[in-house]
Design a protein around this nucleic acid. Structure first.
Lengths: 155, 155
DNA sequence: CACCAACAGTTGAAATTTAAACTATATTCC
DNA sequence: GGAATATAGTTTAAATTTCAACTGTTGGTG
């Protein structure tokens, strides 16, 4: 009878850690987002889309896989790509193998934008994250995040 | 001449760690948000608002401080509180000491909602985060996040 | 083969979020 | 004291995001 099981609350340390994580991440995300917006008119998610495409074979990726890679609903991705397409940074191509599908393809303008945005972004990430941690902490953070990544039954 | 300084890119380990953090956090946030939405009709931010108010003296907090606590723009908080007020979970009171100000106050219904939502939420956080880490890792994560929290010049 | 459930992606409307302008009160400082 | 400036919060409109419904495939399965 599951309903009778005692709830395993977070203890004080866990609670403090959890809240610290929420706050730290929210602040950093907001800062990165505002910075990209101000300097290149991109949101953090759009930046992620461009990076992902740029590292993909032929600078292209199927919508579904792209959505999963940047952790975004397929509807949101569809709108997002529409915007990037209007701006000329991405184009869509129909997929011959699977005629339901579509490729999102990074354009030259998109790659140029990414290259313009990357240095400032990298500097900020370094500034706000890695320069504040010791080498051991960086290694620990990596191990911790890898442990949290697998999402058995994704929603 | 700052423009001539070499860009300090992330090295491979840092890059992998950073991406892992983005992915892990995004997934967890989305999961928590969907879960709260489905079970109690709350977003993660709204849940945070209720928690923060519930722990505040007299279950009340000034808008500005509340916005800073949950890391949200004051405009967004204003809308958010409007929604929670319409739903009866929060009410506004005018502030006598500073007549520009307003208190957001948790109502009894709001507290009841929070108490209904908390067990499931805590269980999910435990499930997705703390049960996947060793005690050392939990301690490390806390230290790391505390190191990242201070945002010298907040935007 | 023909049906039928699952999948890929888009769309339109509703809800939320952002950005900027605005109201009102406090504070500073000459 | 009073003008200038800063702060608290709201509001409006535009942009983004969500949600559910929808269009076409594709992949089994009897």
């Amino acid at each position: 009878m599951a309903a009778m099981d005692a709830i395993r609350w977070l203890n004080a340390q866990e609670q403090a850690t959890w809240r610290s994580l929420l706050r730290a991440y929210s602040r950093i995300e907001r800062l990165l987002d505002h910075d990209l917006q101000a300097s290149n008119g991109l949101s953090l998610v759009e930046y992620g889309i461009l990076v992902t495409l740029s590292e993909s074979p032929e600078s292209r990726m199927r919508m579904r896989l792209l959505a999963d890679s940047v952790i975004v609903s397929k509807s949101r991705l569809s709108h997002q790509i529409a915007r990037l397409e209007r701006a000329g940074f991405v184009r869509r191509e129909t997929c011959e193998e699977d005629r339901r599908g579509a490729w999102a393809v990074l354009t030259d303008d998109g790659r140029a934008l990414l290259e313009a945005a990357a240095p400032g972004h990298a500097t900020l990430v370094r500034d706000r994250v890695f320069d504040r941690l010791t080498p051991e902490q960086i290694q620990q953070l990596g191990a911790i995040m890898r442990a949290l990544e697998p999402d058995d039954d994704a929603p």
